[in-house]
Design a protein around this nucleic acid. Structure first.
Lengths: 220, 220
DNA sequence: TAGATTGTTAATCGATTAACAATC
DNA sequence: TAGATTGTTAATCGATTAACAATC
């Protein structure tokens, strides 16, 4: 079932692909040559049909009774996600969150490389954070243009988030990975993906509340 | 429509509530007394019916033609999410991500307070990070029990994630906010919420790819 | 009153799950 | 061959959107 390119991508499936990828890499490291949907599904607590359908997005074909070749599957997912060639990005905002992102090693798992970081604060500019020099905002637009940067990572304080997003868009960036809680407005082709930590915590707090409620109703 | 408590919560709605909350607080700060769904929806690029239905989860009632009282709505959402009383949490793992979480100011918006941080590395224990002393793992289980901590924030390296999660569960914690890419297995009442940055980046990369493809097909 | 907005029921849409033939 | 697994079509489920009466 080669996914009909006219229909929008099923985003829940896209979001699950990195989970498969991570597990497959682990299996490969353990020397496993082939793997079935059933096996993946079991390990990740998912339905095997769902896994099969998600994998089908990448146009991989498996062998009945056997499964998929681990290596081929890894390559199919990476290629589908575009994680086989490196994505270079500029980071703006080197506060506590921004500097964590600068130092986070896990990004290389998905081919993301932060090649420069910018901050508006004069006392941060010129310092080295996790091995990278912090550049002044003055240089931002010019460097984006000269280096044809597509991806901006936004980790500035909320009040200036929209302003920096405008700057990113006007300098020619096409994608903004938004770590602020601000709903950004951007011009036509630019895409924004929000990392909404508050949304995640809302679910946790709500479910914890349910557990506590049940506990108080039915004590030991 | 007071949400039927027997049916599971619509999680997409729960995830949107913090967005509303943030915007409502902004409106309140600007002195706005009442607000309509239409207005909220417009600002957040959502459908007004969706907003109305989400808000109905909190049992708030509005006035036709007028809308909702800003303050009452804020309180209804906070109460629904349990964000009116403070959630205290222990953080484990003070690497680059963990120390960012320690220093991140935004958590107070949702009543989350990290009251202690732990690390296994001897050279980190005893140091002060963002004003908080790093404690040794030896003290973890005992402190969780004595302080009746419910929430653990997991920001350790992937290889030890499951082990620390086991420790959290066995010491009596009921909720784990998981910043690692590992799929955790936990015993019965414990809830886990994953912050899957890779999933978010997968969507961004995929959509950026689409934009670039369109560009190359229809150049200037 | 007229018009806008809420609350609720019905229709649509998309994602998940089930069923089953094809295949190694 | 027998049994397990894939690929695909159909059924179910849940979330979103539409329709509309009630109300201020």
């Amino acid at each position: 079932m080669p996914h009909d390119p006219l229909r929008p991508l099923p985003l829940p499936s896209v979001r699950r692909l990195p989970m498969y990828l991570r597990y497959l890499k682990q299996l490969e490291a353990e020397g496993r040559q082939v793997v079935s949907c059933t096996h993946i599904a079991e390990h990740l607590n998912l339905g095997s049909i769902q896994v099969r359908k998600d994998l089908a997005l990448t146009d991989i074909v498996g062998r009945p009774k056997v499964g998929y070749e681990t290596r081929a599957l890894i390559e199919a997912i990476e290629s589908f996600l575009g994680w086989n060639n490196t994505h270079e990005a500029f980071l703006v905002g080197v506060g506590s969150l921004g500097s964590a992102l600068l130092g986070y090693g896990g990004f290389q798992d998905f081919g993301l490389s932060i090649i420069a970081a910018f901050d508006a604060a004069a006392d941060k500019v010129g310092t080295i954070v996790h091995g990278k020099e912090i550049l002044p905002m003055d240089m931002f637009v010019d460097l984006v243009r000269r280096m044809h940067m597509n991806i901006g990572i936004l980790a500035v304080p909320a009040p200036v988030a929209q302003g920096v997003a405008d700057l990113m868009a006007s300098s020619g960036m096409l994608a903004i990975w938004n770590f602020t809680p601000v709903k950004l407005t951007v011009p036509a082709p630019v895409v924004v993906e929000d990392v909404r930590m508050a949304a995640s915590f809302a679910v946790l707090a709500k479910r914890l509340g349910d557990v506590l409620k049940q506990r108080s109703l039915a004590p030991l």
